[in-house]
Design a protein around this nucleic acid. Structure first.
Lengths: 185, 185
DNA sequence: GTCTATACCATGATAGAC
DNA sequence: GTCTATCATGGTATAGAC
């Protein structure tokens, strides 16, 4: 499953064959079918894996960050931490969603659930900042911003751009926090 | 070429077969090979087509918009104009770049040239606004913002989100124009 | 220029020996 | 659980008749 996850990320789901995955874990194709009967079955398993990994990561950030702003900054910083892989292969979440959309694949909605985890987590953090009804919109804005940054990082391989957008996101976040603090008083 | 362009957009390049394209224009597969000898050849033709169409569109906006802000707003509004197709298939430019990146395809750089056309056009508009050295960064920011909006529009199929981000972009643009006008004085 | 026929290969998937 | 052998399908690409 880890090998399939990595190959789906690097080569795309459709372009990755059973032979690729079996070869990566040094199994014969025949044996591979003992574990996963169809390609959709291993895709489901990979998405489950990603959902679980995402939940664990978000829980980690919740424990790590002292304030909502610090926690949201953990999210923003994955663009820097995974910069090399994002420049080569894009965002794992966004690219899978987009591919499954083009394939009109049944698992499309489940792939979008990974995005939904980030969205809901960010929404909760903005609510903790006092954003109220606005929290969902702010969460989607940050999520979209990071997606756009990943897309252009992949297209142009421009490290300076990524750094600048991340700094911009942090500055925007601080400004939002100040604005919401003022509104609270 | 138009049929291939549309199919590459809707189904992805890799997932579209010669039979699909030949069938769409009611040609036999054999005959199709008379016109395009390899799949890469038709991909090159499609990218050329897109480059040309993009140049024409940008030239149209240059003529249409009375001011740099009005012209950049033309760019922002394609998210609204193409909303239905973007929600179904994503941004044509971004999704092709991402797919070719995963396929590690030789045409990857040429696909990114379409992005570069938008980037350079936006840079020139921000320069006309008086942004100077900052123009390139502002151009990439707008381009990334629209890419992120397209990515989430595709994942969540949320029309309200798209409208809100477009309004946000226009407001941001107006604020930048005011800031640059003040700095000029 | 257009077609049929076909070579050739990779793929998803199965059967069955060990 | 692991393997080899095999099948059916569909893909890119070519040859050659008309």
């Amino acid at each position: 499953m880890a090998a399939a996850d990595e190959l789906f990320y690097r080569q795309g789901f459709d372009h990755t064959s059973f032979a690729d995955i079996a070869g990566a874990v040094k199994l014969s194709r025949g044996n591979f079918y003992y574990h996963f009967r169809t390609k959709d079955e291993i895709l489901d398993a990979v998405i489950d894996r990603r959902l679980e990994a995402t939940r664990a990561m978000l829980a980690g950030w919740a424990a790590e960050g002292a304030s909502p702003v610090a926690r949201i900054e953990c999210f923003v910083r994955i663009l820097i931490m995974n910069q090399i892989r994002i420049m080569a292969y894009g965002c794992p979440v966004g690219t899978l969603c987009q591919e499954l959309a083009k394939l009109d694949h049944a698992a499309r909605a489940r792939a979008a659930d990974v995005f939904a985890l980030f969205r809901d987590w960010l929404t909760a953090e903005f609510e903790a900042l006092g954003a109220g009804d606005e929290a969902g919109a702010l969460a989607l804005h940050v999520l979209g911003w990071s997606q756009g940054t990943a897309a252009l990082a992949n297209a142009f391989k421009d490290e300076v751009f990524v750094r600048r957008e991340v700094d911009g996101m942090c500055a925007w976040l601080a400004a939002q926090a100040r604005r919401l603090a003022r509104a609270r008083r």
